[in-house]
Amino acid sequence: MTREWKYPNSKFICEKQILIKQTNIFGNTYFSNFIEWQGEAREKFLLEHPNSEQFLRENTTLRLVTHSLQHTFKNNAYLGDRIRIEVTSKNILKYSFLLNFKYFNIKNELLIGEGMQKIGFYDEKLKGLCAVPQFFLDLIIPVLNQ
């Protein structure tokens, strides 16, 4: 039996520390890391759901579709900097929603960057797009940022 659950906070937060391998020849954090961290933060957020294992096991034909994404670079981040990534949702519709990612330098609270993804769902069994599953609504509705 799936117990009812809603994400308990108004945003999901995770952290990254800039390592040498993430910097470029100028010592700045290479741009692609911010896209990679969108994916990582998203995954960590989804795994917050206590029923994530069961959901994945029961929905093997469901595909999360990353429809589009965007990132804007606001300030630099360098080796050793700790970055706080805040995930919220936006514009939750029947078949899609937006995830918003904000990156802050923990040292000075400077906004490093901001990004967004549009997420949809495809069911291989039905061969078509499907509505946002309740599993995801449990997570994204509490973090909805109007």
Partner: peptide
């Protein structure tokens, strides 16, 4: 196609 489905919902 995804946007079309969203518009149907709206």
């Amino acid at each position: 196609s995804l946007e079309a489905m969203d518009i149907v919902g709206e």
